[in-house]
């Protein structure tokens, strides 16, 4: 019985490997490349011919003149897009407690006048370490600081935020969010124009 089934086992595995492991991904690649040429390469953003990021992948910011994103747990540096990772810290771990306190302190020291509580997503690491978004609450929290550093009216900065805010898909799915890289690129554009 074992001998009789060995031949079909080997051949069946070979044939199914060709179909599901070669023909299927090649077929998807071919059609996807024709229909969605931008997406297949990772939705890259180009500026003056240079790739400045992916629409879907976050970048690290800690300069007070930029909006900051979520803390990232990737190693050896934050937002390493070739080694995605979360922190995996447990909710009661002292390391997490310390990290959150340090992040709160860093935000406060960059903006001492702001006494509001810090929105939670701004001081907790994302699951991927590459989260491209912050919540509208986190963007609003940073408006005062960024406006001051750049010498802009708060209303102007808020205008940029609403331009980079993505609503719930079809009005239902997911959560409202602000695209961080888009927002910071828009800020730089505005500052450059006014100079």
């Amino acid at each position: 019985m074992w001998k009789r089934e060995l031949r079909p086992a080997l051949l069946m595995f070979l044939v199914l490997t060709v179909i599901t492991g070669a023909l299927y991904p090649l077929g998807v690649t071919g059609i996807a490349g024709l229909l969605f040429p931008n997406q297949v390469d990772g939705s890259l953003i180009r500026k003056e011919g240079e790739v400045v990021g992916s629409r879907l992948v976050g970048q690290p910011f800690d300069d007070p003149k930029y909006f900051w994103g979520r803390p990232s747990a990737t190693g050896p540096f934050p937002y390493n897009a070739s080694a995605s990772s979360g922190s995996n810290l447990g909710p009661a771990n002292d390391v997490l407690k310390k990290a959150v306190a340090e992040r709160v302190a860093a935000l406060k020291s960059a903006d001492p006048e702001n006494t509001d509580p810090v929105p939670v997503d701004l001081v907790t690491a994302s699951g991927s370490g590459l989260d491209p978004h912050i919540t509208p609450a986190s963007a609003e929290y940073q408006v005062g600081r960024v406006a001051k550093r750049r010498g802009l009216e708060k209303a102007v900065v808020r205008g940029l935020i609403s331009g980079q805010t993505e609503g719930r898909q079809f009005g239902v799915l997911g959560e409202q969010r602000v695209h961080l890289l888009g927002l910071n690129l828009a800020l730089d554009d505005l500052t450059k124009k006014s100079q």
Partner: peptide, 11 residues
Amino acid sequence: GNMEGKEVRFG
């Protein structure tokens, strides 16, 4: 909520 390890777009 508890956002450690979660993504903003999913909440």
